[in-house]
Design a protein around this nucleic acid. Structure first.
Lengths: 352, 352
DNA sequence: CACCAAGATGAAACCGGTTACATTGCGTGA
DNA sequence: TCACGCAATGTAACCGGTTTCATCTTGGTG
């Protein structure tokens, strides 16, 4: 059991001056050698490197980044860490980061705008750039709390007026594709919507509406959770006549809905065709496997980071929107080969 | 489009000296005011705070941590970011970190020991402590590459001789519980094993063996991936007589196995009872729902971080092992109510 | 042999904070 | 009135690197 005092009084951690002394050169030469600059003799370099080795020297990153104005760290601000979406973003970003010798500082802005602001302020001097995904963010908040010259790239976040690059899933196009697929048999399609104040949710709903030629069918409330999907499923099961095609605005709601329908003996896809959005890994594994829209989240994270790295290098930035094109994935849950039973609803009698 | 030159020549970012000048006080008073120390007049504090506000001053973390020797950042080194296990660790750690105003620097040591070593060295001066989970780590590597006084807590990683606290899932006990459950009807139990060089895998196998009184049944190779489980499932389906209870060393293999069995028309649990380990969120959603061992990974991450924070505060550390107790979760896939069909194998004729 | 350019080296300033220590100014008690 | 103590403030050193700029070698050239 080591004690605090022991550690505090212990051998002061070794600095570059120790290394310089040990090698019998100046700190300047030591620094140059350690950083692999070419304006030192081989002999000098060797002596320094050997001394560093001997003393177990580890450079102090904070000191270095104070003088170089570079930390080689990228901040990643996410609203939450729950679920695969966020972990995939991180994974993709990490992939691109390690290729470039960068590190990732993750930060969640769970709560409200105040918390998000605090987190953004804390980034100053810690990171070279910011990957930002937040529902609470607007241009004011950014202007007020972001270090003025901090390169920033947005993910699934749109800011009206800033000169930020942003990478977004093309929720609209994806929704259009899946709803057209569901409606391909000429039947109306119900929607289990996401939270009303959520941008992605709004885009998916817009796609849903446009795919149906501007007229919405039955719309049930949801909030992207499995549970809200489950509740919607229970309601659907009770209806008579019952919608025969349902687009849930994300996979977890679709899965909740699926479970509810199964519990009530409503068969998918025979009685109700069902589709989600996101293609979370689970979608493939539930039975029937879920028709959904696949988005390569990790890739989105990777590309966003690459763009950010570029901006940091070049110093250029600017408004610019890149849409990640999602892909319709048709599975069992919307298999139309199976004929819908006679007497299924073709018009909706209920609205919400 | 902003240009690099513009930015570089732009207004130099504002420092505490600017704030001090603007407020008409010394940097010392400015610093004290900004940090909320009590040895300044209210009037002074107000003037400083107001000046900071006016100039949009943001403190430079690297500079601060250079002099305070505190970065308020915790390093989290993981072997990988794939899958829910790791994201749950991060989520739990993040939860505890934000409560304490700490940030998380995540780092993956994907490849080999060399990479892990490099990552560890890069931590010096960046973090106040390290949460480390790595299969490549041993005491030598730690001693050679860890800053000598860097508080470190291990997760699912055991180091023989170091004075590190470590938090591990009690794989052994969990495996014993689930295998005893499977064997409760008196039938032998097959194992789909994880990678042989993996500690967790070894512990689960040891639990399996001991639960069967020291005698292993049929053991199939696997590597923790769904695909390897699928392959094992195909082999099982072909066997005759066929094992009637299978313990897969993790859920993803169990699920792969489940898919393979379904594909071959082998019914679970009627023909084969199946169980996994981990209770990943999917386990509940597959059909039949998977019997498994639940471990609260996020909680493990949270507790590890709390312990680390404590060590950083107090300066105390020491060897110490905390086992997270997993919990058997019985679901459909091992429902013994359904009688096994007559003629099912009760002895194993094949070994691998 | 004198001169010069190029390359290696070192001293010291600098990055932007914190804090030890000195100084100031004020109210109080003798 | 003066000395004193205490709280507020300021000066400057320090954290551990990098980098500018001056200095010193050294080899090549006229």
């Amino acid at each position: 059991m080591r004690r605090a005092a022991e550690r505090a009084s212990g051998p002061r951690s070794v600095t570059i001056r120790d290394v310089a002394r040990e090698a019998g050169v100046s700190v300047a030469s030591a620094s140059r050698s350690l950083n692999g600059l070419d304006n030192v003799t081989d002999a000098t370099r060797d002596r320094v490197l050997e001394a560093a080795q001997r003393l177990r020297y580890l450079p102090h990153s904070a000191a270095r980044s104070l003088s170089t104005r570079r930390s080689d760290v990228i901040g990643v601000m996410l609203p939450d860490l729950h679920g695969e979406f966020f972990s995939e973003i991180i994974r993709g970003a990490d992939l691109a980061a390690r290729e470039r010798g960068l590190h990732l500082l993750v930060s969640t802005s769970h709560g409200d705008a105040t918390e998000a602001a605090a987190a953004m302020r804390a980034m100053r001097g810690r990171v070279d750039g910011l990957l930002l995904m937040s529902p609470y963010v607007d241009e004011h908040l950014l202007a007020d709390n972001l270090a003025a010259d901090l390169p920033t790239v947005l993910i699934n976040t749109r800011v009206e007026n800033g000169s930020f690059a942003s990478f977004c899933v093309d929720n609209y196009t994806g929704a259009v594709a899946v709803v057209k697929h569901l409606a391909s048999s000429g039947r109306p399609v119900a929607l289990i919507a996401g939270p009303a104040d959520n941008l992605e949710s709004q885009e998916r709903r817009r796609g849903y509406r446009d795919a149906l030629g501007g007229r919405e069918g039955l719309v049930l409330d949801g909030d992207f959770t499995e549970e809200s999907g489950f509740r919607a499923g229970l309601r659907l099961a009770e209806m008579s006549p019952r919608p025969i095609a349902v687009f849930a605005a994300n996979d977890m709601m679709a899965i909740g809905c699926l479970l509810a329908l199964a519990e009530r003996g409503v068969r998918v896809p025979q009685d109700v065709a069902l589709a989600g959005f996101d293609d979370v890994p689970v979608a493939r594994l539930v039975r029937p496997a879920l028709t959904t829209v696949h988005t390569n989240i990790a890739d989105l994270g990777r590309r966003a980071l690459e763009r950010l790295a570029l901006e940091i290098e070049s110093g250029e930035s600017g408004h610019r929107l890149e849409l990640e094109q999602p892909r319709l994935v048709v599975r069992e849950s919307s298999n139309f080969q199976v004929q819908a039973p006679a007497g299924a609803a073709s018009i909706f009698t209920e609205r919400q």
